[in-house]
């Protein structure tokens, strides 16, 4: 049950997308998210969706995994849709009932926001699915480096993220074990009202916190025993190097951005495309 949680899950495969430099992937994903807010026409969304489909195909990650990621945010998507559907003011009224009104504009907004959200989630989960957590944090560390001059502890942030990601599966395992042990002593997590349910979490949370602190202390000790002292003078085993394919990806992204912006400008003049 508890293993269904798939935050930042990595899907191992051999694909051109997996081989891309993590820094490139982060920047491209960021630009892609920005592009989603530039796009404003149906034509534009068709282009974005088609391109995303191509990239997913190239990444060899099964579509099943993408859909699973969407399930967890289904409520947010539905909520956004409902709010947009009923709250958008407009002239073309389609349906009214007492104080509820649906306008053509509202319907259009609702669909547009849903499509945007789905594209956003699928696009960004594609990055985490094709990049190992280590590569990802290395990439973030590199990209944050310029901010060091104004006092942002880039290395420390990246190290904290690495450790946090590393411990997600460990703590999930631990939770599973503790739950089973308490169940063996007759603990019941499923029945009762809200207060009883909240109380039944204490026998899980207390041991979990204690073990998390113990692990943190042991890890700190192990790191110090190997002379870890932060960022200064540290070298890397895997140095990130931009390669041909990374430059290709950058050029393709630039072309993509031009198309998206072009479509937006064109839409301003050619209203029939909406």
């Amino acid at each position: 049950m508890i293993r269904d949680i798939t935050i930042g899950q990595y899907y191992p495969a051999e694909s051109p997308i997996h081989r891309l430099d993590a820094r490139v992937k982060i920047v491209v994903t960021f630009l892609y998210i920005v592009s989603l807010f530039i796009v404003d026409t149906i034509m534009g969304y068709v282009v974005v969706t088609a391109l995303l489909g191509l990239v997913i195909h190239a990444s060899k990650v099964p579509v099943k995994f993408m859909v699973r990621g969407l399930k967890s945010i289904m409520i947010i998507i539905l909520f956004t849709a409902v709010i947009n559907l009923f709250m958008t003011q407009g002239e073309h009224i389609l349906w009214t009932w007492k104080f509820l009104t649906i306008t053509a504009e509202g319907l259009y907004m609702a669909v547009k926001m849903c499509v945007r959200l789905v594209l956003l989630i699928v696009g960004s989960s594609l990055m985490t699915l094709t990049t190992t957590p280590i590569q990802l944090t290395d990439g973030i560390e590199y990209l944050l480096r310029p901010l060091k001059k104004i006092g942002v502890p880039a290395h420390e942030i990246a190290m904290m993220m690495t450790i946090a990601l590393r411990f997600i599966p460990t703590l999930l395992d631990e939770t599973d074990k503790i739950m089973k042990a308490q169940q063996a002593r007759g603990a019941d997590f499923d029945t009762g009202n809200m207060i009883q349910k909240a109380k039944s979490l204490i026998p899980i949370l207390v041991p979990l916190f204690i073990s998390a602190f113990r692990r943190a202390e042991e890890l700190a000790m192990a790191m110090e025993a190997r002379c870890y002292h932060g960022d200064e003078n540290r070298t890397r085993m895997n140095v990130m190097r931009m390669q041909g394919r990374d430059y290709q990806a950058a050029v393709m992204t630039a072309v993509y951005l031009c198309i998206v912006v072009g479509l937006r400008i064109a839409a301003g003049h050619l209203t029939f495309m909406i």
Binding site: K177, A181, R185, A187, D188, I202, V206
Partner: peptide, 24 residues
């Protein structure tokens, strides 16, 4: 009793922790 069962202890006192099972 699971492996390393001491990791399941959570109560304020030894007595209360042992009483968890029978209370349930």
């Amino acid at each position: 009793a699971f492996q390393y069962p001491e990791y399941q202890l959570f109560e304020m006192t030894v007595y209360k922790d042992v009483a968890f099972g029978p209370t349930n």
